[in-house]
């Protein structure tokens, strides 16, 4: 099949970007979206042009590396699917696909379709864990956890951190990502001791990173490759409200966001 790919090309953050259209005449419907870009890149390389930079790694939908907008939808039209598992048979012969990077102030552009998502790592740094050091643990079965709770925690923990929720949100909010971690740990008994503090700190970090606020629109849930439930948003709000109320100090300090790549910045 024939396709036109209109792709955002931008050399680096400082450079000016633009859309460039490429025609592909021999697209196999069995290819994944990323393999389609591989073919394009092979052609470009052979012509001595710079290939399109796009992030990818496992190519089986679990690492969370890949992702871009395909004609206005994060990860493309197929629900619960990352671009690496999206096969081209879901498009029609002659289609024009517009490929754009995730657009968010908190995801500064690196190159072409690649953005910098270290802001998500910093949200996890701000309490997205159980503070237990290696060795200091009781027997695995010492703490029974009902199947229902374990399953719900697993539903929330399935997040792959791809950033599609932020990209799709009209507000540019990272609430689904943050809420998923708060819900995962907040549901489990292991997560209780730090539940209040965790929610307060992670939300503060999310705000400090410059993500937008959640107004419960619901686009995030629709594009989430792991179909994280909007329930996690409510849990985050509740834990945050309770946590803020109980908080005993006036201020919550956030980690300062870093966007550079210099030796002292990484």
């Amino acid at each position: 099949m024939k396709l036109t790919l209109t792709i955002w090309r931008q050399r680096d953050r400082a450079a000016k970007g633009r859309f460039v259209s490429y025609r592909l005449d021999d697209v196999n419907p069995e290819m994944s979206m990323l393999e389609c870009l591989d073919v394009l890149n092979e052609n470009l390389s052979e012509r001595g042009e710079e290939p399109v930079a796009f992030e990818h790694d496992c190519r089986e939908g679990i690492c969370g590396s890949c992702g871009f907008m395909i004609s206005g939808i994060a990860h493309g039209p197929l629900p619960a699917t990352t671009v690496c598992q999206l096969t081209m048979r879901h498009f029609k012969d002659g289609d024009e696909l517009v490929l754009e990077p995730w657009r968010s102030k908190s995801f500064p552009l690196v190159k072409d379709l690649i953005v910098d998502r270290r802001s998500l790592d910093r949200i996890v740094q701000a309490g997205g864990y159980v503070s237990v050091s290696t060795g200091n643990t009781p027997d695995g079965n010492a703490l029974p956890i009902g199947k229902d709770i374990a399953d719900r925690a697993m539903d929330a923990a399935a997040c792959i951190g791809c950033g599609a929720c932020v990209a799709a949100c009209p507000n540019g909010s990272a609430a689904l990502f943050t809420g998923a971690k708060i819900a995962h740990l907040g549901l489990l008994p292991q997560g209780q001791p730090e539940r209040d503090e965790r929610a307060v700190r992670m939300v503060a970090q999310m705000n400090a990173e410059g993500f937008g606020g959640c107004t419960n629109i619901g686009e995030c849930v629709a594009v989430c490759p792991k179909q994280i439930s909007p329930e996690v948003l409510a849990r985050m709000n509740l834990d945050y409200l309770v946590g803020s109320w109980k908080h005993r100090h006036g201020t919550v300090t956030a980690i300062s966001p870093i966007i550079g790549w210099g030796p002292d910045e990484t």
């Binding site: 004609s71 657009r103 102030k105 908190s106 410059g210 594009v223």
Partner: peptide, 13 residues
């Protein structure tokens, strides 16, 4: 939070 907008954006849900 989104200083550069999308050329194309569709709402689906």
């Amino acid at each position: 939070a989104r200083s550069v907008g999308y050329r194309r954006k569709r709402s689906i849900n």
